[in-house]
Design a protein around this nucleic acid. Sequence first.
DNA 1: TGACATCCAATGCACGCGCATGTAAATTCG
DNA 2: CGAATTTACATGCGCGTGCATTGGATGTCA
Lengths: 128, 128
Amino acid sequence: MDAAPDDDVCVKWSETLRVYHTTSCELESELQARHALGLSEFEVLLILSKCCGDGEGKAKMKDIEAEMYLSQSALSRTVTRLEKAGLVTRAVCDFDRRANFLMLTPSGRERFKAAQPTHREVLVKHLS
Amino acid sequence: MDAAPDDDVCVKWSETLRVYHTTSCELESELQARHALGLSEFEVLLILSKCCGDGEGKAKMKDIEAEMYLSQSALSRTVTRLEKAGLVTRAVCDFDRRANFLMLTPSGRERFKAAQPTHREVLVKHLS
DNA sequence: TGACATCCAATGCACGCGCATGTAAATTCG
DNA sequence: CGAATTTACATGCGCGTGCATTGGATGTCA
């Protein structure tokens, strides 16, 4: 698998850096400019919206954390921002009152639907 | 080129996210733990050391900036940290006194040589 | 049941980043 | 030449992040 040795991984890494930075940078600015969403915030909405079909959109914080590359504290604050913006609501889990459920509000679902094309558009532009 | 459409880019993107985050995260912590270097700092040393053969290691700030995914201000502060650590020296360019040269100190070259295997090791682990 | 370990989420804190601005040097052009 | 523009770098500022800690709920085991 690794016939050609060390330099290969360096090239691969610098290519990964290039793709990651250019793409995430444009995602960030386009989502912010067109939909007032940070990338982390969008990603939370994305998980919520696909995690639970159409009607609902519930998920536990821990489950979301597991699907994102974001620390527990950062996720907590991201959710706080989303909550303040009225896009998401926290609800305590009845069976385990340590845990929180997260739910999309109608406004949150709307915002996400509006933003998703922008997201796709940028991805297609950089990864096609 | 793009026979299978939208979902493809999403998969590709999430794969890029995974590789980028796991790799850069481990690079950061290994370089910090073993060599007291942040990833940005290492990357500056890397550019300096390959930019100019063995004996010297000079480069203009602007040229370094162009090779990194880092803002001008972030680079400026990164270099300040490297300078404080004694790994790098700033020198004013005689022909354009706005510009700075950057030079590896012997200590800087040493630190870089010590750190490079760690860097390679992590890359190989994640990208092979 | 009671003491201890574990788990979830929030928060204090420090840090690195990008944006906007400031300062000084160089370049352009009337 | 002299004023306006542009370029290089540093710095003030706000923000999002990770680490460490805290507080509260749950689980475990004797």
